[in-house]
Design a protein around this nucleic acid. Sequence first.
DNA 1: CCGCAAATGAACAAGCTAGTACAAACGGGC
DNA 2: GCCCGTTTGTACTAGCTTGTTCATTTGCGG
Lengths: 226, 226
Amino acid sequence: MNKLVQTGNTARRATTERVQRINDPDRTRADIIAVATREFAEKGLAGARVDEIAALTKTSKRMIYYYFESKEGLYLAVLEECYRAMREIESSLSLDELAPFDALRALVAFTVDYQFSHPDFIRLVMTENIHRGQYLATSKAIQKLNVPAIDGLRRVYERGVASGEFRPGIDLIDLHMSISALCVFNVANRYTFSLIFKRDMGQKRWLNRRSDEICEMVLRFVKNDR
Amino acid sequence: MNKLVQTGNTARRATTERVQRINDPDRTRADIIAVATREFAEKGLAGARVDEIAALTKTSKRMIYYYFESKEGLYLAVLEECYRAMREIESSLSLDELAPFDALRALVAFTVDYQFSHPDFIRLVMTENIHRGQYLATSKAIQKLNVPAIDGLRRVYERGVASGEFRPGIDLIDLHMSISALCVFNVANRYTFSLIFKRDMGQKRWLNRRSDEICEMVLRFVKNDR
DNA sequence: CCGCAAATGAACAAGCTAGTACAAACGGGC
DNA sequence: GCCCGTTTGTACTAGCTTGTTCATTTGCGG
């Protein structure tokens, strides 16, 4: 007997109904952040409701304030986690074995795909920009994991220039911005653009064609046309 | 005597202090919408406060509900007006006298500039996308002024293809989307991107360089490289 | 000069929302 | 075994927010 049935952080003894608790602060925090991410991404900072987040959590509103102090505190934690996850994925891409054009194409195609399948992240960034970056500006965690973000791109570009395939003189941050801009738009402006131009930008088939187009644009931009 | 001093919709007789009213519903509506545009652009739909909008208006909260029925009604009116103004400006651009490359460059440079100096419009569109376009979808006014939006671009592109300067086969909506994406990003992601990559994207000098880069990217994309 | 649309202003109602107080107990590392 | 950090749960508060009500007045086209 004494079967332990996991229901999130708590487990019940089937026989006695007495609640057995498992202390796991990391998991509790992660659970809250996961739920809050969805809510903030869905409704923005002002539109999200702490009660709603609490209800969807395995724990209670008490714990939200226990760990994050305020709605804004929770929002910032969500934002930091979102950037951290982005960078982690980005840095896991290995492009060094591919020829410059193939590597750049892979990088762009990956970015398109990744952002499309993680709309929450982009929606959070949109929300933060509506707030003029005021919360991100207070974050210490963000300042650290910033510039290495374009290391992958840098290596590819430098190899391309060295081989003569890419034209030199392109500013890397500019290039990164152009790629980001083209990729982010698919998610960020999906609804208004779909409505006005009657394209379903949520379809995977559409995205694949769009991905090719974006790759083409980036590759033509860097291509050395002596 | 009897000097009329305009203070918005009302005018006072300096001598008697008696208030003389001027009935001008168009102007009242326009005033409310102008204030509401700033507020919604600044704080989003959920973050904006009707009381705040009313206070900044020349009229009262009563009139907001008199004309727009609800906060959402006002928001939709703001959104419609914002799109209408965008299209109006876009269609005022005359590119037909320029050679294809120059015309396209002018179109792109204009778009960069216009969006940069009208951030409210882009911020509203961001907000509407956070709401998954649900308000724009209910609008009848929007459905009408949509596709002609790319007529200017179409004419330029077709001339370029005819003269052999542009490569054929490019989808116009795709091209429009790419231009939009590159331009919108400057405004939409200005704060987070500036923070992470330590560039002040609010500076005019930066924008000019960025504008050149975007033009370059678009021109290289359409250029016929037989 | 009549009647309707436009406007005024302040106070109120009802519901919502972030955050707290209270009261109690458990888990696990040391 | 002790203690601190973790957890549970509810009820509450104080302030905010949308939208309404009431009581009135004015402008203006026909």
